[in-house]
């Protein structure tokens, strides 16, 4: 059923991604590809992987931006994956019932056995979260590692999405964003967690933490010597004559 759940639970599992600490190493993208090519939506096909024009299905891609303004400028590495929106048009446009949002935890999934490969869901997603599998003729997307987070065969600490488990910078956090007292909700609140393209009204679950102000280098290097003391202060005064 591609109508949204009429009685969704308060639970909204998702990610909080820290753009301040992300170092742009692409480990999340690689770990995602590795896990998911054997997971719930497996395989994630590759065309011409070692050739001149490789292309393939990835659920997570890291874009690097240059951000600048009155406050200064810096590089921001930006991992992009499904945001598991509260109002996901990718679900409601689906003509077959293949695309659905789970009432129990808000995860947006695709039932591959029902998908006819019309691609309309990928057009309806503003964020480019869905990629088409030419080999299977069906659409594929991030499952929030549904086969890890509920997996009793894994140690409890490992029951997080592969991208979160692998992140060496601690820039990715997984949890229940529907619960205001959860660690991820408190982190998003404390760090001014943002929705992407809020103007479109999809109400994404995932939040992005903007860079902390003190990590943004100011536009011009500070060459003022005010406050210099001791030997350096003496040198400054001497040279300033």
């Amino acid at each position: 059923m591609t109508s949204l759940p009429s009685h969704p639970s308060d639970k909204a599992l998702g990610l909080v991604i820290d753009l301040d600490t992300c170092v742009g190493c692409h480990a999340c993208a690689v770990a995602c590809k590795e896990w998911n090519t054997g997971g719930h939506m497996a395989p994630l096909p590759d065309r011409d992987p070692y050739g001149a024009e490789p292309s393939g299905v990835w659920f997570n891609r890291v874009h690097s931006f240059e951000a600048s303004g009155a406050c200064g400028g810096r590089t921001v590495h930006f991992p992009r994956s499904c945001l598991h929106c509260a109002e996901p048009d990718c679900v409601t446009v689906c003509p077959t019932g293949a695309s659905y949002k789970r009432a129990e935890d808000g995860i947006v999934l695709i039932d591959e056995d029902k998908c006819i490969g019309c691609k309309l869901c990928s057009w309806a997603c503003p964020y480019g979260a869905r990629e088409f599998d030419d080999d299977a003729g069906v659409m594929k997307k991030c499952t929030l590692c549904i086969d890890r987070i509920y997996n009793d065969h894994l140690a409890p600490a490992e029951r997080v999405p592969a991208c979160v488990a692998v992140c060496p910078a601690g820039a990715r956090h997984f949890g229940d964003l529907g619960d205001p007292s959860s660690a991820v909700s408190r982190l998003a609140a404390a760090r001014d967690g943002r929705d992407l393209m809020p103007e479109l009204g999809y109400r994404p679950t995932n939040k992005y933490l903007p860079p902390r102000v003190h990590t943004v280098p100011s536009v011009a290097p500070d060459d003022s010597t005010t406050g210099a003391t001791g030997a350096l202060g003496w040198l400054d005064r001497l040279l300033s004559r």
Binding site: S55, S68, G69, R194, D195, P210
Partner: peptide, 25 residues
Amino acid sequence: VTATGLGAFDDVRLLDPPHTGSNYL
């Protein structure tokens, strides 16, 4: 700016794409 949530900045431009080849998108 709205697509990346980087509202504190006036200008946001792509520096490096995530992949050098093409893809479905």
